[in-house]
Design a protein around this nucleic acid. Structure first.
Length: 826
RNA sequence: GCCGAAGUGGCGGAAUUGGCAGACGCACUUGACUCAAAAUCAAGCGUAGUAGCCCUACGUGCCGGUUCGAGUCCGGCCUUCGGCACCA
């Protein structure tokens, strides 16, 4: 073999070899345990960045490790290929979005192949391919049939920059998730998926996800935002109407001193129509509607409201209370109307103080001593009900139950659970997405496109500078069609689907990627799914991961799959940062994977990324660290080169009992390393410590070389072959090269993962720490396996110990076998 | 405000079940090799005291507790990062 390690020569060779051998092709096989490892598929932006390299390196180690352990491993890759950037490129450079996207895909696929990733490329999918989006459309229709896709007019999020609507999940602090510009509210008719029907299951089943990080589960929990309360009605006698309010504090219902409606509430216009200051109130409402969403929903925002001139009757007290309209009540949550209880809600306190509305204390938290005069803010703690009719004297938590029961008996209200989660707005006024397969017929109304007419193909040669209208609406051939039901003239829906729909089921398509009759065969999906290990960025904690969970539940209800949750274990990798900041073009701190691979090779890049930090933590890019990884691989190359002749000429067998002391020690380190790497990769995903263990083994091989102590060629073959197996998932090219040169002609990646020899890892002599009063005072070498009594005796015999405890009384001696002796004296 | 995660050398990080804090790597220092440099191989490297070795004391964000023994467990804080937030 060459004296120097030259990755540039080695890597391409093995990448071709793996491709020619179809090394990573996977078939369904019920005789073997399956394992599905998946990295989030990328958007084909044009080039891989270091975050991708990290993501794929992690997945590749897991995949190769599991293959060697004997699992039937599914490890696919594909493209989340619809979306805005392709259209922006079309507007800017005049290139067709499809052309731009496919070009990017082939470039990024090449870059992935240069990393040496073990994907089964036969299963590659791209969401923008008609063979894929046909089934996205099919699934839309499934949702439609099941009553989970519907169209409604609502105030929706609109991004002026992207010229389209957005789902709530895509609005980050009031800004567009993609272009970061401010999101405004627009009243539009749009398609929604009824994710709220699944709110409770999406919340409950989080408990099943033992292999998910706590913070992701918490984020989803917060997002779903379940609250338990009650809903009840106030009569409005002058209109013969009712105002229904939602509250989680029905125990404070006797403290209501006013009722507030959201400005958008449908009753507002009715109430104010005949009032003298109606015009003034309307002006106020218009003003509130023009306030931005973030401003309006910020708790620091000044509360403003107006009295409507009408009154409502509190069903508990029979009292009339004024009806207000105010900016702090949101039409989307609850009933769009709330009861005002200034004494026990901070917002109501502020509002009532500002507009001099009365306050009434109904929960006493100070054993009868509480009074309004002493209060400087609302009291929202526990206490006993006062001024609350028949409920006075009850503990406020008990009162919730009693009052809810009363509401239901009197038929003025009921218990109710509310969610913060909104339905998923799925239509987009964009071209580069899957067309929504719906036809509008004047005679038949809304008609779903029949399955045999799918896919509804995206037309070519479209103009993109159409402003706030979907580009598809400008294409007459696309829009005009015949009604599938009556054959009359009809129009197609011109909106496309949110790309998050495409990515909500791709993991299922991988299990059966070329199926032409259904999106996937159920038995195949049931064999491979759920994904055993999913790996991706934390930025999808809510968006993609919530939508995919929703899809899985709907498909289960439809009988297409037999599992509840798509991703059994989730690893959220940290960011790759440089100089303390995320790599970005604007900061000028981007390191190009291609350049690194050209300079050091893919094995070095992979090794550095996996070694520099545990996968969940942010990783600081360090060129010197990369050098270190490269140096280590060179060290491996040279030490194996040193033993090459010995190992190639050796047979596999040797007499273990004939090993020298030094050989035994090296063998012990080898098997300890096998044990550690197996556990670190298999149980904990601590690739950094797995690699450090391999480094220690290599260091020990250098020590042995220095001692000139290893002469047993059969044993050395064991060391070298196992070292290469351990290294194979991390540095697949180098391991393959050395394996085939030194050990065997069959791929190292087809070898069984090594199993450690329990006898080899046992030490004959061990070091015992001697403590006096918990402080380390000495260390002794003793034969392994001494009983605590023997240990204690040995410890007390030590000269140094005798010296230190002389004249003192021994209170207690603690012996931890194989570890330490602690002598407690006074 | 509510919820979650994390704080360990100059740096990235390790310590898996309460048992030698700092594995492994980077940086740095030194030696060997070399005319020299690079590469490589070898050694040292928490802080303070000491010329130096031995040794001693201190040391895992802060304060306290439990324990023979705490980076690890408990109570109370502080800081950083992330999510949610006028959600009634």
């Amino acid at each position: 073999m060459n004296e120097r390690y030259t990755p540039q020569e080695i890597e391409a060779k093995w990448q071709n070899y793996w491709r020619e051998q179809n090394s990573f092709h996977t078939e369904l096989n019920r005789q073997r345990p399956e394992y599905y490892v998946l990295e989030m598929f990328p958007y084909p932006s044009g080039n891989l960045h270091m975050g991708h390299v990290r993501n794929y390196s992690i997945g590749d180690v897991v995949a190769r490790f599991k293959v060697m352990q004997g699992y039937n491993v599914l490890h696919p890759m594909g493209w989340d290929a619809f979306g805005m950037p392709a259209e922006n490129a079309a507007i800017k450079h005049g290139v067709q979005p499809g052309e731009w996207t496919w070009k990017n895909i082939s470039n990024m696929r090449r870059q992935q192949q240069e990393i040496g990733l073990s994907y089964d490329w036969n299963r590659e999918v791209a969401t923008c391919h008609p063979d894929y989006y046909r089934w996205t459309q099919w699934l839309f229709l499934l949702f439609y049939e099941r009553g989970l896709a519907y169209k409604k007019k609502a105030a929706v999020n609109w991004c002026d920059q992207c010229n389209t609507v957005l789902a709530n999940e895509q609005v980050i602090e009031g800004n567009c998730w993609r272009c970061d510009s401010m999101v405004i509210k627009k009243e539009l008719e749009q398609w929604f998926f009824k994710i709220t029907d699944y709110a409770d299951r999406l919340l409950q089943d989080l408990a099943e996800l033992k292999g998910w990080p706590e913070r992701v589960k918490t984020m989803q929990e917060n997002w779903i935002g379940r609250s338990e309360g009650a809903e009840f009605s106030f009569d409005v006698p002058e209109l013969n109407e009712k105002i229904t309010v939602y509250t989680t504090r029905h125990d404070t219902a006797f403290g209501v001193t006013y009722v507030v409606l959201a400005p958008e509430h449908p009753l507002v216009e009715k109430i104010i129509a005949d009032k003298p200051n109606a015009a003034e109130i309307r002006a106020f409402i218009d003003n509130v509607r023009n306030q931005s969403e973030i401003a309006r929903t910020s708790s620091e925002f000044e509360k403003e409201g107006m009295f409507t001139g009408a009154y409502a009757v509190n069903p508990f007290t029979g009292e009339q209370v004024p009806i207000w309209v105010a900016n702090y009540v949101l039409i989307e949550y609850g009933t769009g109307a709330v009861m005002g209880v200034p004494a026990h809600d901070e917002r109501d306190w502020q509002f009532a103080t500002k507009y001099q509305l009365p306050k009434r204390l109904v929960v006493d938290g100070q054993q009868g001593q509480a009074n309004l005069e002493d209060m400087t803010g609302a009291y929202d703690g526990p206490g006993v009900l006062v001024n609350s009719g028949a409920f006075s004297g009850l503990d406020n938590e008990q009162a919730k139950t009693s009052i809810a029961a009363w509401l239901e008996e009197q038929s003025v209200g009921k218990r109710r659970v509310n969610y913060r989660l909104r339905d998923w707005l799925v239509s987009r006024q964009r071209y580069w997405g899957a067309p929504i397969p719906i036809i509008y017929c004047e005679a038949c109304g809304v008609v779903p496109v029949p399955q045999d007419q799918l896919p509804v193909m995206l037309p070519d040669n479209v103009r993109f500078d159409t402003g706030s209208v979907s580009p598809l609406a400008q294409v007459d051939d696309f829009v005009h069609c015949t009604c599938p039901t009556c054959g009359g003239a009809a129009r197609r829906e011109t909106d496309t689907m949110d790309t998050f729909i495409c990515s909500s089921w791709y993991y299922l398509r991988y299990t059966d990627p070329r199926n032409t009759t259904v999106p996937f065969d159920s038995s195949k999906a049931n064999y491979w799914m759920p994904v055993d290990q999913y790996i991706g960025g934390i930025e999808h904690a809510i968006l993609h991961l919530l939508y995919s969970r929703f899809f899985t539940k709907v498909l289960k209800d439809a009988g297409l799959i037999n599992f509840n949750e798509p991703f059994k274990n989730l690893l959220t990798q940290g960011m790759v940062i440089k100089d303390g900041a995320k790599m970005s073009k604007s900061k000028g701190n981007v390191v190009s994977p291609e350049e690194i691979i050209a300079k050091y090779g893919a094995d070095t890049a992979r090794l550095f990324i996996l070694f520099a930090a545990p996968p969940e933590r942010d990783l600081e890019w360090s060129e010197q660290g990369v050098e270190g990884a490269y140096r280590f691989l060179g060290r491996v190359w040279r030490i194996i080169g040193h033993y090459e002749k010995m190992v190639t000429e050796a047979s596999g067998e040797y007499d273990k009992s004939a090993l020298t002391k030094e050989e035994k020690e090296l063998r012990r380190i080898l098997h300890v390393t096998i044990k550690r790497v197996t556990e670190d990769v298999g149980n904990r995903f601590n690739f950094n410590t797995a690699i450090s263990a391999i480094m220690e083994l290599v260091n020990a091989m250098y020590v042995a070389k220095d001692q000139n102590a290893v002469a047993n060629s059969g044993f050395m073959r064991e060391v070298v072959s196992n070292l290469l197996k351990l290294l194979a998932p991390f540095a697949p090219h180098l391991a393959e090269e050395l394996w085939q040169q030194v050990i065997d002609q069959e791929s190292v990646h087809k070898q069984p993962w090594p199993v450690f020899d329990a006898d080899a890892v046992v030490l004959e002599e061990i070091e015992i720490v001697l403590q006096i009063n918990g402080k380390v005072r000495d260390k002794i070498i003793v034969p392994a396996g001494l009983t605590p009594n023997e240990l204690e005796k040995k410890a007390l015999e030590q000269e140094k110990v005798e010296e230190l405890i002389a004249g003192k009384q021994i209170v207690k001696v603690i012996c931890v076998p194989q570890k330490l002796v602690n002598i407690v004296v006074k």
